[in-house]
Design a protein around this nucleic acid. Structure first.
Lengths: 223, 223
DNA sequence: TACAGCGCAACTGTTCTACAGTTGCGCACA
DNA sequence: TGTGCGCAACTGTAGAACAGTTGCGCTGTA
């Protein structure tokens, strides 16, 4: 085993940095759904060539936050009931499948850690942080399936969901009662720890479905 | 309901066409794992600008068939035991989850159709076509979950798997005995039709796991 | 023989300029 | 009211140019 075990050089090109920057702005709500990403504006503002921005936007497209339309360029995605439904269906499938089987040790420990961090965050009343750690807890659930492919897929879902929550200003409402959130997650964790898979599945299902319902209702209630 | 119901204009840019072309060449085995996609060579050969090729390759990257390495450009992915394992784990999860619940009518019909086409193909002894319809049958299984998100994800997995099968020249061996393949798929279909979810899950699991084992064994047996 | 150092050719990453084609919008005109 | 035209803004694409990186072979040296 090498003395350099685990050392990897992280180089990145201008295009990758622009893509990452755009992604974080979008998730933070700096762009609204349906907004176009104008290449020349971004290019001049960031001091890079339009080509580079084009490439950045193609990279960004992989995150699912923007979609290309021919002759209109990149457009920020919009939440629709269908998309949100498909997203939550996928989410529910992965998570219920994950908790329907016994969770092994390293992943169980990771789950506990994730829950503990969520508890801390809840005390801090930093809403954005709470949401992030909430999602991180659920990522830890999916990680018990031990497939990097599934982890990556789930991460994509969460990026998109994160954006929708921002757009709908849902972070606020979701944590009117951080205690409820904690209680639900604790119930899930306890069911997993005790090996009671049937209960765990039901807890996860109802947790996700109630969230999905709320998002879709708010979506339908707009305009 | 409009008289133009379902009509959508399918425009595509040069970059998209180049990306699609490259993708089909790669899957067909025209590029080997680890091969670099040289921008200028492709550009001059196709009579497009290097910029356009760069964009095409970024689009191609979304299919998962190539990966970028800084200062080396796009490199065709290589099958590794870890990647193949993660892929099959994801596949097994989706498909077993799909058949563990009752399949409703439109999807059941689609499954039967997919199976019938597979039977036809098996008679034709056109190996590539058999593989495609085999994968299509499994896509139909995932489609019963009714989430476009899952469908898209599964499609990605299948593109990658398709490439690995080509690389390992597995199409040949897999269909030494098309009858066995048909039998396995028929068993799955029958279990689904009869509503015997437990059997369906077991059929699907063993089908996928035996395939996974074979691919990984061959992978380990090389060099 | 092994190997460090150098140099060169081939590429990638990036910029800049240019231009045809498309879209969106407002204005004039019917 | 609505149709058509024209213009401005942008996208899609091309092409040339150049710095920085990589891979590889050659050369001289231990």
């Amino acid at each position: 085993m090498s003395a350099l075990e685990g050392l990897v050089v992280q180089r990145s090109t201008a295009a990758q940095q622009v893509a990452a920057g755009l992604a974080s702005r979008i998730v933070a709500g700096a762009f609204a759904p349906g907004d176009r990403l104008r290449e020349s504006a971004i290019a001049t503002e960031l001091g890079v060539a339009r080509n580079t921005v084009r490439e950045a936007v193609r990279i960004l497209e992989q995150s699912g936050l923007v979609q290309y339309e021919v002759n209109r360029g990149a457009v920020v995605i919009s939440p629709t009931p269908e998309k949100v439904d498909a997203l939550y269906t996928a989410r529910e499938l992965l998570e219920t499948a994950a908790v329907s089987r016994p969770v092994r040790e390293p992943e169980l420990a990771a789950l506990k850690t994730a829950y503990d961090k969520l508890v801390e965050a809840a005390a801090s009343h930093d809403v954005l942080r709470i949401v992030d750690l909430d999602l991180a807890f659920h990522s830890a659930i999916v990680a018990t399936l031990r497939s990097s492919r599934l982890d990556e897929f789930y991460a994509e879902l969460m990026v998109e969901l994160r954006f929708y929550l921002t757009v709908l200003s849902l972070e606020d409402r979701e944590f009117e009662h951080p205690d409820d959130v904690l209680a639900e997650h604790r119930a899930i964790l306890e069911a997993i720890e005790s090996g009671d898979t049937a209960t765990a599945v039901e807890q996860v299902r109802s947790h996700i479905e109630s969230n999905a319902r709320r998002v879709i209702e708010i979506l339908n209630g707009r305009d």
